[in-house]
Design a protein around this nucleic acid. Structure first.
Ligand SMILES: [Mn+2]
Ligand SMILES: [Mn+2]
Ligand SMILES: [Mn+2]
Ligand SMILES: [Mn+2]
Lengths: 235, 235
DNA sequence: ATTTTTTGTTAGGTCTACCTAACTTTATTA
DNA sequence: TAATAAAGTTAGGTAGACCTAACAAAAAAT
């Protein structure tokens, strides 16, 4: 079994290496920044994880996960997302209240618990933020999605996930009616600074480019599948 | 907030001081034994808890909990028992499978989580082992109960709790049909060594005195109330 | 009332997960 | 290419929660 700290590093590495659009090269400093620790601390832990064959890296080089390390990290992500789903679906938490608690729950050690919970929730494929939940083997479903900031004017998308999980972002999103599964139309975009007019539930809101870069949408007709252009895709 | 270790000590003290039939004087050695640590370790922690005004004790004296310490310990017990109930009621765990996992879950820090869970379970008063679940203020319902070993021959009792939570005990209890809420009749008892014949679900089983001393029963007609003899009590 | 046993304390040490400060390597820029 | 900046490493240190070994106090037994 892994310690809580080890699990946090493995999860962070999965997120930095595999769950990012670009730049999947990860170094000590970036990892440390992500985990709110000092580079020296991250360096210590990397040596320990290397000893245990969970990461592979050489001094001054970039970090990667071994098969075993990736599996372990995925498992933490799986637990995190299942617990978030539980909190929202069963205990009526709001989507901006679950992350902190899930950070704790993700470290509970019991195979039976995780799998029972998965069944109890009817094997959900996505968490309350629209992020894919890895299955028992660490596999995830990847919907073909794009950032709202990349959707052309006049087109609509269905919200599948948000990148920012901060309270301020989630509450702002809530306020203007943006939620997982909801539709958004890009009514206009200012070329000067990317200010975008969104039509949500028949109301218009002018939001920043930054905001749009944190929302993933899919074509409402072909949510899954890699090459969207070959279908009757609305994008 | 308290650390996981601190919480474990506070819970142990509540259990040793308040949840025991007799002998509620507790010392360093006993506490250490209960928690599977060495006396020196328990001593260190007691000093720390005294600093924080959670226990009150003097060198070489007996340990007691302050109001604040008792409140904190009760809260851990509450969480432990709520999670055990959740595991059995919602995730179909058996009553001998829940303790270990609850030992982990009891340390999750979120008032909202505990109270939501309590509501989700419809504010249960007893856990799967028949132990009372403290409410938000740390109050518990105490059924008038006696040990099965003290029930007279010919009388029946309804099982409300078991003292031993070990796998071997629970599985043995299961095997002969003893479960919370079930009825047991004391059909006979050998005065030589206390060997007792129990009638459970119309079958007779001869069990040891030791076994009987780990089962709490109440009169089926007056489960609650302090002075059983004033009612139409079957005992 | 001693002796012996049990119980409790102290001193000093380990291991984990952090830290700061100083240093080295690699990358960037002039 | 040489200077500078950024990234990564090492050494040494702290705090929490545990340990062993030696010792002191209290309780029990003779
Ligand atoms: Mn989260
Ligand atoms: Mn999430
Ligand atoms: Mn338990
Ligand atoms: Mn219990």
């Amino acid at each position: 079994m892994f310690s809580q700290a080890e699990e946090n590093y493995l999860k962070a590495l999965v997120q930095l290496i595999h769950f990012r659009d670009q730049g999947n090269e990860v170094g000590t400093n970036e990892l440390a920044l992500y985990l709110n620790v000092k580079p020296a601390t991250a360096n210590d832990m990397l040596k320990k994880l290397r000893e245990k064959s969970l990461v592979s890296y050489v001094k001054y080089g970039k970090i990667s996960l071994t098969v075993e390390g990736q599996k372990a990290g995925m498992d933490v992500v799986r637990k995190h997302r299942l617990w978030e789903t539980f909190l929202v679906e069963k205990l009526d938490f709001a989507w901006d209240e679950v992350h902190e608690v899930a950070e704790q729950l993700e470290h509970i050690k019991s195979k039976k618990l995780v799998n029972s919970l998965d069944d109890f929730l009817q094997n959900p494929k996505f968490d309350p933020h629209g992020d894919a939940i890895p299955d028992r083997e660490g596999r995830i479903l990847i919907p073909y999605q794009r950032l709202l900031s990349e959707v052309s004017i006049g087109k609509s998308g269905k919200v599948v996930s948000v990148k920012d999980n901060s309270n301020s972002f989630l509450q702002y999103a809530d306020k203007i009616g943006v939620r997982i599964g909801g539709m958004i139309e890009v009514a206009g975009r200012e070329s000067y600074d990317g200010q975008t007019t969104l039509r949500v539930e028949n109301k218009d809101h002018t939001v920043s480019d930054k905001f749009c870069m944190n929302i993933h949408v899919v074509c409402p007709t072909c949510k899954l599948g890699k090459d969207c252009s070959k279908n009757d895709c609305s994008f």
